[in-house]
Design a binder for these strands. Structure first.
Ligand SMILES: [Mn+2]
Ligand SMILES: [Mn+2]
Ligand SMILES: [Zn+2]
Ligand SMILES: [Zn+2]
Lengths: 150, 150
DNA sequence: TGACAAATAGGAACTAATCTTATTTAAGAG
DNA sequence: CTCTTAAATAAGATTAGTTCCTATTTGTCA
């Protein structure tokens, strides 16, 4: 990510925190900066270990609570998983996910074909849809290559 | 569910167990019967509590291990969640899910409009897709009614 | 600069999932 | 039907993930 884009996202993040009367602490900013540089939908523990390099005394709880708070105010998202620890996504734009069932990677993709994933009328009338996503399960390139070998 | 359909599904389940050289134990059959009667994508603990009525000595571990085994041989599915305990789905036919963010309900729906949720070419060439699902997040009727009150 | 509510660090507590081991049992052979 | 054996079970211990508790620190605003 460009330095410039990064700064811009952090600025927006700080703005959103203020709107929600959240204090701008160095820990929160550090955590957010780590997260927006991540590409793998990391767990709280992974974020913790990364941010610990910059803040050696930070506690796991601070990281985990910050991530939950960020999800509440909508600057990050908790991603769908099939068990295991929660995973976080700094990309809150509409996009879709591939889940590799062998290595657990979650790969982003966008596709105009799904652009207006319409909600069936029968459902739209009883369920208030807030977000929509296509979740594909399967095997990533590396993992399906490994399987071929046997 | 009709008694007849139930019996048919259990028969199929037993057949699949045999194909995988799994022993047909009363516990496994009991667990499977409970699960196919469930409509709420239950957790292992919920299945445990229900099956305990029929098998008072059954252990949680037996239930949990059985459910994992069932998922491995493909007679049930682990459902996508946003944290919390694993939840299981006895319906392995293609279908989609609504997740209520307030009460946690997961509601099934089918929609021909998604029937051929095509996989973008760029992805199909690097990722081997095994299953596809639309996941909608939002509020169910009861929960959005509750919100209106404030 | 001072007051105060909010946030943090550190550890305890809790919940979910998995592992260990002694005992029981399903299933196939005879 | 009986015997043998590997697989499955029950019960409890252990581990992993998350949340809670409390004393201390810190960001914010007057
Ligand atoms: Mn993503
Ligand atoms: Mn379902
Ligand atoms: Zn993979
Ligand atoms: Zn609801």
């Amino acid at each position: 990510m460009q330095n410039k884009e990064m700064a811009q996202r952090v600025r927006l993040f700080i703005e959103t925190c203020r709107r929600h009367q959240l204090k701008i602490t160095p820990q929160r900013v550090g955590i957010y900066r780590i997260l927006i540089q991540s590409k793998r939908h990391p767990t709280a523990d992974l974020v913790y270990r990364a941010v610990k390099k910059e803040f050696p005394n930070i506690s796991f709880d601070t990281v985990n609570r910050a991530l939950s708070t960020f999800a509440e105010i909508g600057v990050v998202e908790v991603v769908e998983t099939f068990g295991g620890p929660k995973r976080f996504d700094p990309d809150i734009k509409d996009h879709h996910h591939l889940h590799c069932m062998a290595c657990g990677r979650i790969i982003d993709f966008e596709y105009e074909g799904y652009a207006r994933l319409e909600v069936p009328k029968a459902i739209a009338s009883t369920f208030k849809v807030i977000s929509r996503r296509v979740v594909l399960k399967g095997l990533c390139d590396t993992c399906s290559a490994k399987q071929q070998m046997f």
